[in-house]
């Protein structure tokens, strides 16, 4: 069961037995949980429900996370303690500052724009005849792997020289040419962070589907009476949106923004596949990968990961306050 399966039936069998094993584990947890009685039962049942999760997370995320924090105070090979030198590098080195700046641009733009597009689109297509088809179109990019997305956007951004016999194969440059302009080497132009913004477009393109789907569900759950009442009051469409729709889906928007912000902080494959982090487009998660894998600098990589932790703290704090307010 734990050995290599090489034919399809073997693989299937292995998968089924794994699922059975998992079901058995769950069964045991639930069995014990159902036996618990008495005053302390809530405590015990709570811990039992969380037991598998805590075990997996402790081994899979907490332990590596703590190790990373520890390693961030050591040198490239993890041999010598060097204090906060790695953090100094991140905060003083010119390249690293660009990386930090880019990450902040990403995390400010992506969640907001993706959520806005998702929300507007969800409202626009709501109840329309082609709703499910229309939604599938925006959802489609989510179904595409980054490797594939890289190819897709190559055919948007690609540059070909402006010469008589050479044709553009990137759509954007073709449009520029059609309108009498000259093709631009889009991905290596960092004036006004153009290339970073172009990469951000790709990520928004992928993530808007997530925002749209979740927000659409929330919109559909707004109780009818509220809407009816507002309508009887003769509320204008705009104030309907501002006074009814927005407040009703506010918590959902927070959830979506949070999820997207965290996802954006971790973004790495978009940058990796499209520019490799060159031309001043690198972000922390990509730089982390470069330092860990390419440059073999464990210490700096670890420190970069810790900076990611730190950047997410405001998001966590905000969410905790949300939870408190609701409670």
């Amino acid at each position: 069961m734990f050995s290599t399966a090489s034919t399809t039936p073997e693989k299937l069998l292995q998968m089924l037995s794994a699922l059975l094993l998992f079901a058995a584990v769950l069964g045991v947890v639930l069995f014990f949980a159902s036996r618990v009685r008495g005053k302390r039962s809530d405590n015990l049942v709570g811990y039992l429900y969380l037991l598998p999760v805590v075990l997996l997370l402790a081994v899979g995320l907490v332990y590596p996370g703590l190790r990373t924090i520890y390693e961030s105070f050591f040198d490239a090979q993890g041999n010598a303690f060097i204090g906060v030198d790695n953090y100094k590098t991140i905060l003083t080195d010119g390249d690293q500052l660009t990386v930090l700046g880019n990450t902040i641009v990403w995390v400010l733009i992506v969640p907001v724009v993706a959520t806005a597009v998702g929300l507007i689109y969800a409202i626009l297509v709501d109840k329309s005849r082609f709703e499910s088809f229309a939604k599938a179109l925006i959802f489609l990019p989510m179904a595409i792997s980054m490797v594939a997305a890289g190819v897709i956007w190559k055919f948007m951004y690609e540059y070909r020289v402006d010469q008589p016999n050479v044709k553009q194969i990137g759509l954007i440059n073709q449009i520029l040419v059609w309108f009498g302009g000259k093709p631009v080497q889009l991905l290596i132009t960092d004036t006004g962070k153009l290339n970073t913004l172009l990469l951000i477009v790709v990520f928004i393109w992928i993530q808007a589907g997530f925002a749209m789907t979740i927000l659409s569900a929330a919109i559909k759950a707004i109780p009818d009476e509220i809407v009816e009442a507002a309508r009887l009051d003769g509320v204008s469409p705009w104030s309907m949106f501002v006074k009814i729709t927005l407040p009703s889906v506010r918590t959902t928007i927070v959830v979506v923004l949070t999820t997207l912000a965290i996802g954006t902080l971790k973004v790495f494959d978009v940058v990796r596949t499209m520019t490799g982090g060159n031309f001043k487009t690198s972000v922390i998660a990509n730089e982390f990968y470069s330092q860990l894998i390419r440059a073999d600098n464990q210490g700096l990589a670890a420190a970069l990961a810790v900076v990611l932790f730190i950047l997410v703290i405001p998001i966590i704090v905000y969410n905790i306050r949300q939870v408190r307010q609701e409670a």
Partner: peptide
């Protein structure tokens, strides 16, 4: 670790494992 709580399952898993090795 906690799969041990279901002994018969583990036995089954073992048997399956052997089968897979032979298959391989």
């Amino acid at each position: 670790g906690h799969s041990g709580s279901s002994r018969s399952r583990v036995a089954l898993a073992g048997a399956l494992g052997v089968g897979l090795v032979f298959g391989l």
